[in-house]
């Protein structure tokens, strides 16, 4: 069945309209951020991304937060999920439910209720913006869970670990040298999506008066809209690059497996 010519033309027109809707604002950001008063072009707004001290420190904060969140998420989630598969499969529904719960409890609700918890965190750990990583780990759980779960489902964890154990491996060896290398793409997927979410996070940071990238972009918007727009576009492009890379690494093998079934 070949599509008729009219349908093909209609498809192109529709795709063009969607492209226009989505690309015009992105193009406008580029145009707006490089505009100079009285005509002409300037790269000043883009240069500010590395020169403005507020912005650079916010970028560093957000990158560190992303790193801490990824490490914390892996340390918390990976052993738990492997443990559930190996020793208490009956708890898998509970863990899944808890991991997906942050989808139902919006970040806005968490930030409203977390003042007491953070009083303790600030008292026991520190009051730096990096403590936001604790709550960011919760925010990325649903996405990280799905990625890791997909990875674990594609291998036979029980058989692999029994084989390793019978050869004398301890639990740590099983986890780090048997399971992790086998679900590498799933872990990478979980890490990438977590980085993207943390770099885009605004709600919690702004309502707790911590300065991460998005808070500073928003704040700059009042005094220097061009730099804000440049930083926004840079952040979007960075996130796009991450997700594009993810589509090659994370889903490549699994997609083929599913297709073969």
């Amino acid at each position: 069945m070949t599509p008729t010519r009219r349908w093909r033309a209609g498809r192109v027109v529709l795709l063009g309209l969607f492209g226009l809707f989505f690309l015009v604002p992105l193009y406008s950001m580029l145009d707006f951020s490089t505009r100079e008063l009285g005509g002409g072009r300037t790269g000043q707004a883009w240069a500010n991304l590395v020169q403005d001290p507020d912005l650079t420190s916010a970028i560093i904060t957000s990158l560190l937060l992303a790193l801490l969140t990824v490490v914390g998420m892996l340390v918390l989630l990976l052993p738990t999920m492997i443990w559930v598969r190996l020793r208490i499969p009956e708890a898998s529904r509970l863990v899944e439910f808890l991991c997906l719960l942050p989808l139902t409890i919006p970040a806005l609700v968490i930030v409203v209720g977390m003042r007491n918890v953070y009083t303790w965190v600030n008292y026991l750990v520190s009051d730096s913006a990096l403590t936001l990583a604790f709550v960011y780990i919760v925010l990325v759980l649903p996405f990280a869970y799905r990625a890791i779960d997909a990875g674990l489902s594609s291998i036979d964890v029980v058989t692999l670990s029994e084989a390793a154990r019978s050869l004398g491996a301890g639990w740590l060896t099983v986890m780090l040298r048997i399971v992790v290398p086998n679900i590498w793409s799933g872990l990478l997927g979980a890490a990438f999506i977590s980085v993207a979410l943390v770099l885009g996070e605004f709600t919690i940071a702004s309502l707790t008066n911590y300065e991460n990238l998005q808070v500073v972009i928003n704040f700059l918007g009042k005094s220097d809209a061009k730099t804000s727009v440049a930083a926004s576009l840079a952040a979007l492009v960075f996130a796009f690059t991450l997700l594009m890379a993810l589509s090659y690494v994370g889903r490549g093998r699994r997609g083929q497996e599913r297709g073969a079934m």
């Binding site: 989505f22 015009v24 604002p25 992105l26 406008s28 950001m29 145009d31 707006f32 951020s33 999506i193 993207a196 979410l197 770099l199 885009g200 996070e201 605004f202 998005q214 972009i217 928003n218 918007g221 809209a225 804000s228 727009v229 926004s232 576009l233 952040a235 979007l236 996130a239 796009f240 997700l243 594009m244 993810l246 589509s247």
Partner: peptide, 22 residues
Amino acid sequence: MSVAGVLAQFGGVTLAFAFIAT
């Protein structure tokens, strides 16, 4: 799919600025 992922999940501040620029 990557553009969709970014726009859908990356956060609203940047998108607000996209429309401010437009």
